[in-house]
Write a protein that binds this DNA or RNA. Structure first.
Lengths: 200, 200
DNA sequence: TATTAATAAATGAACAGTCATTTATGAAAG
DNA sequence: CTTTCATAAATGACTGTTCATTTATTAATA
């Protein structure tokens, strides 16, 4: 039954594809570049993944599973829920802290602009992150770090927006360090900036 | 001296280019698509703009000038600085409230990923927006809407991140309406979410 | 005023390059 | 020998770009 064994595994091809995307962006990815990276020939990739699109789908699926698994890890001995939230946010930043990685991350977020079928994968990762954030926020409420009655789901949405937006704007102006800006913005989102009389 | 008059103006070509980018993304733009849109032939665009890259540079330059001019408009009879800030943010959202416009906006933000020379244009728009936000925040401080001693520049950075990130995440999950989510996130950034005893 | 020359704009065809994909062929392992 | 993997070459569809040519307009000339 078993014929000639594969010279290179699927996983190393996908890793190479991610690497290429990191360099030239998702739209600039070519089968030739990926094939070169792993010592194969473009046609082989088509045969193994069906098409270029098939390879991209496989890459999206793998990335999504990895990211979901990452977000399902329990809080690891962090002193407080909010501290764990900051850690989560900073880890997310690791996906955007170089121009290459940022381009890659952006490509992932906007995969549906390349191929609508890939949208579900980006969405599942996004929702896994949201669930993790909501869980931490609720812990924070339970432990008194956040005011009781906080709309944790809505706040989680804001936190996600802040994470994504901080990466985006930092990629644009490169002022300061990314963790520093993230921490400041997060603190601003979670603590008061207004005088005691509340605004409208 | 004067030869044959131009059948279509530069501005309508650039507008068509922006439209095409909105449909197929910046990397998917082809001269043929733009030429089709305005009833010309691809070669004509090369002759008029020097090259495809020249057309993109012209588009970036125009978009940058438009956006800067937009941000330099004075506060227009808004009841309060923070209300004006919310209005500014919501106007920014108008650039991302459809998939097409969002793609276009994203293309603009990431122009340097297409061509490094275009980065300066994206950056200048970003800084114009920052100046506008800082000005409003300082008015808010002066009028007592924000606590004295607020680091308006840092807070402006957070506001920008929130604007960009809200557009990004909304494009991903499409939950709720964009203005609603933006307003909630902004309120969260500018008002307290913690109990009176402040967190670290 | 009528005619001609000069100039710019636009065309359409062709070019060279790249890309994904297909086909036919050879090699490696059970 | 059969099955699977990989290759090399060829294909067809695009791409941006160039070139000679045509068209439309203004300026100058007689």
């Amino acid at each position: 039954m078993a014929g000639r064994p594969r010279g290179v595994d699927d996983s190393v091809i996908l890793r190479a594809a991610a690497e290429v995307i990191g360099k030239v962006g998702p739209a600039g990815l070519t089968l030739a570049a990926v094939a070169d990276e792993v010592g194969l020939v473009p046609g082989t990739l088509v045969q193994r993944f069906g098409s270029k699109r098939g390879l991209l789908v496989a890459l999206a699926r793998r990335s999504a599973h990895e990211a979901e698994a990452h977000h399902e890890r329990p809080r690891q001995g962090r002193p407080s829920p909010l501290e764990a939230l900051r850690a989560l946010a900073e880890e997310s930043m690791a996906l955007m802290d170089t121009p290459e990685r940022f381009a890659n991350h952006l490509a992932f977020l906007c995969m549906d602009l390349i191929d609508p079928e890939l949208h579900e994968y980006a969405l599942s990762v996004h929702e896994a992150q949201r669930r993790a954030i909501v869980a931490l926020l609720e812990e924070a409420v339970a432990e008194g770090e956040l005011r009781a009655g906080t709309d944790t789901v809505a706040l989680a949405g804001s936190v996600q927006a802040l994470i994504a937006g901080t990466g985006l704007t930092w990629a644009l102006d490169r002022q300061g360090t990314l963790p520093e800006r993230l921490r400041r913005a997060l603190t601003g989102l979670l603590s008061p900036h207004t005088p005691s009389k509340e605004m409208s």
